[in-house]
């Protein structure tokens, strides 16, 4: 085999993937980045290069800052709750005090929210959180509230309600991943800790958490990026309203593009989101490499 042939062979093998990545990933991303530097592209047949003007407009738009604030609340609360609920349920399912059948049944029940599509989740929760819905009915009968709460229609509670829906729909991913991790921890470690006299809390923090650390870091990073980009659930439940109360970066970008037809502004917003996701992605890759 000649030196040149040897050099080129691996790239030939990679060619199909490279072609697909270029068409499906690189080209759209480059186009969106390009759009963000022009005045209104698509609508304007001859767009003019405006440099960073679109970024300046987006970053000086008060609604964008509301969207950032809401996004941070939505993302941080969601991933913390996902982590806590996922860990709790995974440990319940991993306990030796329950039978195999019981564990199997609860594993299916706990994982159910993850099986539904965003549209189904949105419809179900919209019905439950309707002022005349099940939740208000139960809470009224239990004496917890005296008048109907407008869960998705009130600016005071809409963001918390949407976050709750997202927590419900996302925790099974943590639960399943952590459960897989827990089942991979050697029982020798727990036996050794028991012989050393460690209590349950010490065992959890000194053995379980360190053993799960690589999985947990990956989960948190992936969840951060996914929740940051969450659009369907918010759009179908509140549409970013009432009055921007649940506006997030993704709904802001959608409205700029498909409601105002300001594709350049939408692109600028998307590039800002891309930068944040890329930073998290770099950390994720580094962490994966370190794990290897």
């Amino acid at each position: 085999m000649t030196k040149g042939k040897k050099f080129i062979t691996p790239y030939l093998y990679l060619l199909p993937t490279i072609i697909l990545m270029c068409i499906l990933l690189i080209v759209p991303i480059v186009m969106v980045i390009g759009y963000s530097f022009y005045d209104n592209v698509i609508i304007n047949k001859n767009p003019v290069f405006v440099g960073l003007e679109n970024y300046s407009k987006v970053l000086s738009d008060p609604v964008f800052f509301v969207a950032i604030k809401n996004t941070l609340f939505f993302v941080l609360i969601s991933i913390v709750a996902h982590f806590l609920i996922g860990m709790l349920f995974a440990m319940l399912l991993n306990t030796r005090y329950l039978g195999v059948m019981t564990k199997g049944i609860f594993r299916v029940i706990y994982a159910l929210p993850w099986m539904f599509t965003a549209s189904v989740i949105a419809i179900v929760w919209r019905m439950m959180l309707n002022p005349n819905g099940v939740l208000n009915y139960l809470m009224t009968n239990m004496g917890l509230i005296s008048e109907k709460v407008e869960w998705l229609a009130s600016r005071d509670v809409a963001l918390a309600s949407v976050t709750l829906i997202n927590i419900w729909s996302g925790y099974p991913f943590y639960m399943i991943s952590i459960l897989a991790g827990l089942q991979g921890i050697s029982t020798d470690l727990y036996e050794a800790s028991a012989l050393d006299g460690a209590n349950a809390v010490q065992t959890f923090f000194r053995i379980t958490i360190p053993q799960l650390k690589p999985i947990l870091i990956s989960l948190l990073m992936l969840d951060f990026v996914w929740t940051l980009q969450q659009f369907a659930l918010i759009w179908m439940t509140t549409g970013g309203g009432p009055v921007n109360a649940t506006e997030t970066i993704s709904t802001y970008i959608y409205k700029q593009g498909f409601s105002k037809y300001q594709y350049s502004m939408a692109s600028a917003g998307a590039v800002i989101l891309l930068i944040v996701c890329t930073i998290i992605g770099i950390f994720y890759v580094r962490q994966q490499k370190a794990g290897d």
Binding site: P131, K148, L152, S154, T237, P242
Partner: peptide
């Protein structure tokens, strides 16, 4: 007005 107008 029926409740929940803002998200209806």
């Amino acid at each position: 007005i029926a409740a929940g107008a803002n998200s209806m």
